[in-house]
Design a protein around this nucleic acid. Structure first.
Lengths: 195, 195
DNA sequence: CATATTTTGAGAGTAGACTCTCATTTGAGA
DNA sequence: TCTCAAATGAGAGTCTACTCTCAAAATATG
C-alpha cells in the first residue's frame, strides 16, 4: 500500500528510459536504418528480447507524445477565438507549461526527427493522427463536422505553415522557434498577404 | 538505323510494365505488406530476381515522379498572378495534360501511397524536395529570397491544404479531386474565411 | 527465511526483402 | 546461320526485425 512505486517499478522505468536514450543516441550518430536493435540492446546493457518487451517495434523507440498537452490547451480555450488564433495561443500555452529541461529535450528530439529522414518517416504515422485530431478539435470548436472542407483547409494550412517553419528551423537552429511560429500563425490569420 | 526500339527493348518495357501492373493489383487486393515479392514475380510470370532487376526495392514499384510537369506549368505562368492563383492554374494544366488512362493510374497510385504508411514514408524524401522546389519557384516569381518567411508560409499553407485534401480524398474516393483542389485553393486565396 | 510472482537473458527460430552466382536462353548483327 | 552480348531463371545465401520458450535471477509478500 505504498504510494511510491516499488523498486521493481522504478527499475523498469529506468531500464525503459535507458534503452530509449541509447537508441536515440545511436540513431543520431549513425542513422536509424544503420542501427540494429542488437546494438541498442548492447549499449543499454540489456538483452535484445528485452528491448522488444519495452518497445513493440523499433519505430516505437522514437515516437513520443507531446501532443496531448497542446490539444488540451486548445480545448480549454473559449470557442469565440478563431481557429488560427486559438492554435496560436494553445501552442504558446503548451510550450510555456514545459520546464526548460523538457523544452530542450523536445527541441533536440524534433531536431533529430527532422534531420534524419528515416526518423521523420517513422514518426509519420503519429503525425497524421495528430493532424486528424487537430482537425476534429477545431471542428468541434466551431460546431461543425470534422470533414467540413473549410475546417479541413484551415487545419491543413496551419499544419503546413508549421511544418514549413519546422524545416526552416532545422536549417537554421538559431531561430526562436516559438516566436517564429507565433508570427507565422499571425501571418496566416491575416490571410497570408505579401507585403 | 531504326527509330523504333528493337524487340529487346520492347520486351523489357513490357516486362517492366507487367511487373508493376501485377504488383499494384496485388497491393490493392491484399495490401502492401501482405504482398511478397515472390507473389508479384509469380503473377508476372517472372523470377523473383528479375523483379529486383527492374525495381531496386519493393517501394519503387509504387513511386513515380509526376511533379516536373506541374512545376513546368507553374514556371510558364505570368508572374502577375498571385502565388496561390498560379498554383491553382498550374495544377489544372498539369492534370489536364494527362491522358485519362494516366490520370486513373496516378490516382490509384496516390491512393496506395496515402493509405500505406511505409509508402507515404518512402515518398517523403521526394515530397520534401518537391515542396522546397515549389517554394523556390514561388519565390522567384515574386522576386524574393527562397527563405523569405512570407513565401515559406504561403508555400506551407498551399502544401498543407492540398495534403489535407489528399487524405480526405483517400477516405472518400468518390470525390472529384481536381475540382476539390481548385475549391480548396480558392478558399485559401480568399484568406480561409469560415462562412 | 520461504514461497510466489515478475522480469530478464540466452538463444533458437521465422519471415521476407534483397544480393550473388552461374548456367541457359534470347535477341542483335554480320 | 553463326557469334556475341544482354537478359533471365534457379536457387543458395545474408541480414535484421520480430517471436517464442524456458530457466535463472530479482523482487514482493507473509
Amino acid at each position: 500500500m505504498n504510494d511510491r512505486p516499488g523498486l521493481r517499478e522504478r527499475k523498469k522505468a529506468k531500464t525503459r528510459a535507458s534503452i530509449q536514450k541509447e537508441a536515440l543516441r545511436l540513431f543520431r550518430e549513425q542513422g536509424y536504418a544503420a542501427t540494429t536493435v542488437e546494438q541498442i540492446a548492447e549499449a543499454a546493457e540489456v538483452a535484445p528480447s528485452t528491448v522488444f518487451r519495452y518497445f513493440a517495434t523499433k519505430e516505437d523507440l522514437v515516437l513520443v507524445d507531446q501532443f496531448p498537452p497542446f490539444i488540451e490547451a486548445l480545448r480549454a480555450l473559449p470557442p469565440e477565438l478563431g481557429p488560427v488564433s486559438a492554435v496560436r495561443r494553445a501552442l504558446r500555452a503548451a510550450v510555456e507549461a514545459q520546464t526548460p529541461e523538457e523544452r530542450a529535450d523536445s527541441l533536440e528530439r524534433e531536431r533529430l526527427m527532422a534531420t534524419v529522414p528515416e526518423l521523420w518517416a517513422a514518426s509519420l504515422k503519429g503525425v497524421t493522427g495528430e493532424i486528424r485530431t487537430l482537425q476534429e478539435t477545431l471542428a468541434a470548436r466551431e460546431g461543425r463536422e470534422p470533414d467540413d472542407p473549410e475546417i479541413r483547409n484551415i487545419t491543413g494550412a496551419i499544419a503546413g505553415v508549421l511544418v514549413a517553419l519546422w524545416f526552416a528551423w532545422v536549417r537554421d537552429p538559431g531561430m526562436d522557434a516559438l516566436a517564429e511560429a507565433d508570427q507565422a500563425l499571425a501571418h496566416l490569420e491575416a490571410g497570408l498577404p505579401l507585403t
